[in-house]
Design a protein around this nucleic acid. Structure first.
Length: 919
RNA sequence: GCCCAGGUGGCGGAAUUGGUAGACGCGCUGGAUUCAAAAUCCAGUUCUGGUAACGGAGUGUGGGUUCGAUUCCCACCCUGGGUACCA
């Protein structure tokens, strides 16, 4: 009987849904939590690149379940976001509608793939019963501050108690830079509003008036990780710097723990490395330079040993002391330079990295050790928000300082040397001895550094300091389609709404655009006030709010009393395996770790890292096709003739191309402007060009999984996706290749048929058959555990070819094989299983154990090489001694022929590996 | 520039701790079946010389270590990803 995947897959899809075989509940088995990055449900639906990770995780889930684990495998949707909102702006349709339609479509497509998701745990970040708890977590952040002494987040009431006892002089907590020192009495005498403003400087969710990435095109601010090359990642609109009041999360308080935690988790090196660089910890020294007019300028350096190489100071254009330092003659120039800098957008700054600019203030500082006069400059290469916004410039040993000094003809003093002399380029290596440095001369770099550290603190002009590149995360967006903040304003002071008033639902509005005054869309909502009196916050939360904790909500998605139940969190804990794209390295994956640590500090969860292991699946690339149109004409030239004309390369829909040949008639009909197109062909065919690039609608190279399932079935698609290559690598998609796995599946199916009738034999298996089976079980088990799914597929092909050759249809062999194959091709295996066992689900079986004795042989085909080059192989019993092997080898005629009259220098025998004759 | 991956036939890719390079599949070639095609089955397929047996070369490039290197070391080239003045 033919393999009819359509009826098989339809049947089991229904059965599985009806019997809820993927539903998970807490039981006394060991848990295993497998998570896929949940998708944003876009209108385009899935293409074959999307399910790659889902199929891999599904195979692992099914395998773990066969191993006896209680496997949690949920799926949901990251449904707040820009495309739905932009669609809403264009059509007036509420984003909720499109979100619903799109996620239903996704769900159907995912179900067609036979993925073992527990859909009863489905969540959408835009559902009120989900974002209710996102708002609730925001409230906890607002109500917390970070205590550096306990190294954790603590409820704000503790801080208030401390203020009442001792003021803030002994408080060690991250806070805004402009926080003043006050005593307990001063605190008590403050008004309520004044107190609230001070508390806001300590809260983990706070209002900050800072420079933000303002994106006019999107009408909103963006976080650093949402901006690239000066444009927004979504949409590609220009981003500029603007000072605005925004909600921010004090992620910097967790910088050190986020860094340290990386050591405990099994993540791809590249992601860890990216997070490390993003956090950017550097330790150094703050040193105070006195100016001639007695001001203190604090600088930060990581290289104190170069202090005698300082030939100027550079301040950021925003530096607080600038007005006092600038002499009258320079005031105009400095003012102009400042204006230029403030105007600069991120884009300008990035595109002009190589240019050097700056102005001299006219003032001098005094070198803390040599008392030498040091000119003070300003330049935009010094950032106001890193370190102290001022540096000591050591041109001989820093690339930017060097360029600056050369440009403005400032002297360059070399103070570190390994023999080379600084002339045309700086010496950046941290190797060598200190020179030209008074009392530091001849010391090693580390000794000199230590000495300066000590002296600086003795003289009371500095202290060691640690700086991070990481910035607090801007948390408000001037958009509609996001979580509203559970916040209203009373006398300009932000206040939280009560827990029992959550969720604060998105109000309906007449248009999804900003107001005429430039306020966010929520300002349009009518009668939307807290207790009809107080204004709500009009911004909404960013896209990453909901995704920062969704893995927790899956554990208990229907809980109406808590964000997650205690029993659930205790049993399921954190994610054991997380599969998704690497593009979230510094966004989602960092924010999730931050929120997890925060919730851990509040004892709301029992783990401090969200994802124990991460695997980044590689992107599947599409093969794009091109046609070549002669410039100015509606004539297309075939690929090999195109160089004879001036042509424009145009993407053509891959559905109009077959094996590089353009289907000319279909192409003509595809667009009005092509109706009358003419073609210059070669051998009567129009050949298209092709190249491999990202699979994307705009390149017309998208392959839809639905079409493939229609033609070959989901099992073939699943296996083919795995067969393409290693999970983590980028790989091109070529649909033709699927015939390989498709015919494998048909061959496997036919193992169970004799003369068109289903038939498995009860005969006892031979040793040879057992050997084949157990070898395969061993190999598959190992490969699955190393996530090497592509090699699993070839093993299945190999065993199937072998069993066909020996015509084996014995139950003793095929039954275990079915279980081993079932994670990969669940429909097929379930169908055959039910033919043997009736109603039983193959997923409830046990993964078979292998017996090594069955496939370890007592002889070995030794490859014999001469001088490392393989010449022949000889079958030798494993029990022979080296001497016996040697005698056997040299007595072979082929061997004596090969050696001829040369002398054997040595024979190397590696047991069960190789024999090498050296002549 | 810096950091991280990766580079193996016409193509996707295999190859325990250094030990038979090219498993498995696609494609291609030839054959069987068929009126024919699709599908299926059988054989071949790294390049190169040879009918063949058999030889030579060969894992981005150049060196090195080793009896033996796709695997280890050094230098370089290329592709992809990340990052952007962080003192």
């Amino acid at each position: 009987m033919d393999y009819n995947f359509k009826t098989i897959e339809e049947r089991w899809k229904k059965e599985w849904e009806k019997n809820k075989i993927f539903k998970t509940t807490i039981n006394n088995k060991k848990k295993f939590y497998v998570l896929d990055m949940f998708p944003y449900p876009s209108g385009a639906g899935l293409h074959v690149g999307h399910p790659l990770g889902y199929i891999a995780s599904d195979i692992f889930c099914r395998y773990k379940r066969l191993q006896g684990y209680n496997v949690l495998h949920p799926m949901g949707f990251d449904s707040f976001g820009l495309p739905a909102e932009q669609y809403a702006i264009a059509t007036g349709q509420h984003p909720e509608k499109t979100t619903k339609v799109n996620s239903e479509k996704y769900k159907k497509q995912l179900k067609n793939l036979g993925l073992s998701f527990d859909w009863e745990r489905e969540l959408k970040t835009s559902d009120t019963n989900y974002y209710k708890w996102t708002q609730w977590i925001f409230k906890q952040l607002f109500n917390s501050y970070y205590c550096n002494i306990d190294d954790k987040a603590i409820h704000i009431s503790e801080l208030i108690a401390e203020f009442e006892r001792n003021g803030n002089k002994s408080v060690q907590s991250p806070c805004d830079d402009d926080t003043q020192v006050f005593t307990a009495d001063e605190w008590k005498n403050l008004s309520y509003e004044e107190q609230q403003n001070i508390l806001l400087k300590y809260r983990l969710a706070y209002l900050s008036n800072t420079w933000v990435n303002w994106c006019e095109g999107l009408g909103t601010v963006l976080a650093n990780d949402e901006v690239k090359d000066g444009v927004s990642i979504r949409g590609g609109y220009t981003v500029e710097q603007k000072k605005m009041k925004q909600w921010a999360l004090r992620i910097t308080a967790y910088a050190d723990r986020l860094l340290k935690g990386l050591d405990q988790i099994d993540w791809p090196n590249s992601v860890k490395e990216q997070q490390k660089n993003w956090i950017g910890k550097s330790s150094g020294l703050n040193i105070i330079f006195k100016t001639e007019n007695n001001l203190n300028i604090s600088i930060f350096t990581t290289r104190p040993e170069t202090i005698f190489g300082v030939s100027f100071l550079v301040l950021s254009p925003e530096h607080e002391h600038l007005s006092q330092l600038c002499i009258d003659d320079q005031k105009e120039k400095i003012r102009k330079y400042q204006i230029k800098c403030f105007k600069k957008t991120e884009l300008d700054r990035i595109s002009n990295v190589d240019s050097v600019s700056g102005e001299f203030t006219g003032s001098y500082a005094l070198h803390p050790f040599s008392n030498e006069k040091i000119p003070i400059w300003i330049s935009d290469y010094v950032l106001s928000n890193y370190g102290s916004g001022a540096i000591m410039a050591v041109p001989a040993h820093d690339a930017r300082d060097f360029k600056f000094a050369k440009n403005f003809k400032i002297k360059i003093t070399q103070v570190i040397s390994n023999g080379t002399i600084v002339e045309n380029k700086p010496y950046l290596e941290k190797e060598g001895k200190v020179i030209n440095s008074s009392f530091l001369n001849k010391l090693s770099i580390s000794d000199a550094s230590d000495k300066i550290s000590k002296l600086v603190s003795q003289k009371n002009i500095g202290s060691s300091s640690i700086n991070f590149r990481l910035r607090d995360a801007i948390f408000s967006r001037q958009r509609y389609w996001g979580e509203p903040f559970p916040v209203y304003y009373k006398n300009n002071i932000p206040q939280l709404i009560n827990d029992d008033e959550l969720p604060l639902e998105l109000p309906s509005i007449d248009s999804y655009l900003p107001t005429k005054k430039g306020d966010p869309p929520l300002a349009r909502a009518r009668n939307w006030k807290y207790k009809d009196n107080y204004v709500y916050e009009h911004s909404t939360m960013p896209g990453w709010a909901g995704s920062s904790w969704y893995f927790i909500r899956y554990l208990d998605p229907h809980n109406t009393k808590k964000f997650v139940g205690e029993k659930e969190i205790k049993y399921w804990e954190n994610v054991d395996l997380y599969i998704g794209g690497a593009e979230h390295a510094t966004g989602h994956l960092l924010y999730s770790r931050f929120w997890t640590k925060f919730l851990f500090d509040l004892s709301l969860i029992n783990f401090s890292e969200p994802f124990k292991k991460i695997i980044n699946q590689g992107m599947i690339l599409g093969e794009s096709s091109f046609v070549y149109r002669i410039k100015g004409k509606n004539t297309f030239v075939s690929y090999n003739l195109k160089d004879k004309y001036k042509t424009t390369k145009i993407h053509v829909d891959i559905n109009l191309v077959e094996k590089n040949h353009l289907k000319i008639n279909k192409f003509k009909k595809s667009r009005i402007e092509y109706n009358n197109a003419e073609f210059i062909c070669e051998d009567d065919n129009y050949i298209c060009g092709s190249s491999v690039e990202k699979m994307s609608k705009s390149f017309y190279n998208v392959v839809n999984p639905d079409n493939i399932i229609e033609k070959y079935g989901a099992d073939s698609l699943r296996m083919f996706e795995m067969f393409l290559g290693p999970l983590t690598q980028f790989k091109p998609w070529k649909t033709e290749g699927i015939t390989g796995v498709y015919s494998f599946i048909k061959r496997f199916w036919s193992l169970f048929y004799r003369n068109d009738k289903f038939e498995v034999s009860e005969e006892i298996a031979t040793n040879e058959e057992k050997k084949i089976l157990h070898e395969t079980i061993f190999k598959i088990k190992n490969d699955i555990e190393q996530y090497s799914f592509n090699t699993c597929i070839s093993s299945f092909m190999i065993i199937t070819n072998k069993l066909r050759k020996i015509n084996c249809n014995k139950k003793e062999i095929l039954e275990p094989l079915l279980i081993v194959l079932s994670p990969f091709a669940p429909f097929l295996c379930q169908e055959i299983w039910s033919k043997i066992h009736g109603e039983k689900n193959i997923i409830d079986e046990k993964f078979p154990k292998y017996d090594e004795k069955l496939f370890i042989k007592n002889d070995f085909d030794y490859p014999v090489s001469v001088n490392g080059k393989k010449k022949l192989s000889i079958n030798i019993n494993k029990n022979l001694t080296d001497e016996e092997i040697e005698n056997l080898v040299v007595s072979q005629k082929r061997v004596t022929d090969l050696i001829g009259d040369k002398k054997i220098k040595k024979i190397i025998i590696v047991k069960n590996k190789i024999i090498n004759i050296v002549i």
